[in-house]
Simulated scan of single mutants.
Amino acid sequence: MTILSDIPRLLPEGMALGPALDRALAILERAGFSAVIYDYTPVPRSHDGSLITPNILEARRVPEDMLALWKSGFYQLDPVQDAALATAAPFVWSGLGKQSRVMDEVIRERHRPVLGYMHDMRFSFGVTVPIHQPRGDLATFTAIRIDAEPDFAADAAEIVPQIGVLGQIFHDVVSAGFDAETRRTHHVRLTPRERECLSLCADGLTAKEIARRIERSVPTVTLHLNAASRKLGARNRFQAVARAAHYRLIEAAPAA
């Protein structure tokens, strides 16, 4: 079975996220899937290793409470997301039965609430496509079958590579329309001036030199640097620069 026929017509360049997700679900329904989920985050993990709630988290035909639960903390307990960070290949999972190797390797006790939800909602078979970008961005495209027949998993496993292609095409289509705010982490928010001061600090400038560069007083520069450090939970400016770089909030100027 193929689900990839006529993809350019169904998912043309420039299509917005909502309509594209509707089309993706229609394509997946050909293979018997019930629901689809897509998420995107420019920085997948915080500096302490915790999963960051994505900037985009959209779905079709999932239980009514699912997105609210994931946005309020279940995302950090989702073993599927941990598995997506551990592999670049599409993988299968189940809320009811045997897990794939990559899932077995990441599942821990802390994942129990999400696994329990998947079981209660009868998420019997899922395919997740991890989409790793060169700068570290992560998107996942997930097809779910709710309450599948006993033989569904064997048949669906054969088209996992096709779902991988569909997920990548979907991401390429919708991500072309992402604006700068979507591509910036929302986990920590710095003002433009705070980002500017940290960027100059990362380039080796002192507070006095930064003050001359941006035509502000030294106390004002110090205020911006201290505010940025507090938001980043940093003990000093060196740690603030490192964390800001981790969250892609600053970029050092190219070497002369």
Rank of each mutant, 00 (worst) to 15 (best):
V92M: 15
A86N: 13
V36C: 11
S229Y: 00
A255L: 11
T185Y: 01
H187M: 02
V80W: 06
L11A: 08
E64T: 11
Q168K: 15
A83C: 01
L28E: 06
R216H: 13
D48W: 07
M118E: 15
D147R: 13
A20C: 01
A31D: 05
E251V: 06
D39S: 14
P79A: 02
G204D: 05
T191E: 14
P161V: 02
D137F: 11
E215T: 11
T41M: 04
V92K: 07
Y247M: 10
V102T: 15
Y247G: 10
P161Y: 13
F170P: 04
A35Y: 01
E215C: 04
N236E: 05
P54Y: 00
T185S: 12
F152V: 08
A88V: 09
S124M: 10
D6C: 06
R60N: 02
C197V: 15
P161C: 09
P90E: 01
E209G: 06
V106T: 08
T53K: 00
A227V: 05
R101H: 10
L28V: 02
R195V: 08
L190E: 04
A242Y: 02
L115V: 13
A228T: 09
L198R: 09
S46N: 04
I144H: 08
H224P: 09
P63Y: 12
F91K: 11
A143Y: 12
A143C: 15
K71L: 10
A148N: 11
G32Y: 12
H186G: 14
H132F: 07
Q76F: 00
H171E: 04
D179W: 00
Y40W: 08
D172W: 10
T191N: 07
R212C: 01
A86W: 02
M121F: 07
P192R: 11
G136E: 06
V92N: 04
G167R: 12
R184H: 06
Y247I: 09
M118Q: 14
D6L: 07
Q168M: 12
R216Q: 11
F125W: 10
A139K: 04
N226Y: 11
K231Q: 09
H47W: 13
A154L: 14
A244N: 05
R184W: 01
L17V: 13
D48N: 12
M1L: 08
H47M: 03
I146G: 09
P90D: 06
V188P: 03
E158G: 07
P12M: 09
T140C: 15
A242K: 14
I107L: 01
R216G: 03
K208W: 06
G136Q: 00
L223V: 08
R110T: 02
A16F: 01
A26T: 14
F141Q: 06
R101C: 03
V174F: 00
I146S: 09
E158V: 13
V36Q: 09
E29V: 02
V127P: 00
G116M: 13
L11K: 11
R112V: 11
R23M: 11
R110L: 05
T53Q: 00
P219T: 10
H47Y: 10
A20H: 07
P12R: 10
T87V: 13
A256E: 11
P130S: 04
W70L: 15
S100G: 14
G164T: 09
T128H: 06
G164Q: 12
N55W: 00
E158A: 14
V160I: 15
V80C: 13
A207Y: 05
A59Q: 13
L57S: 01
T41S: 05
Y75G: 04
E58N: 00
L51I: 03
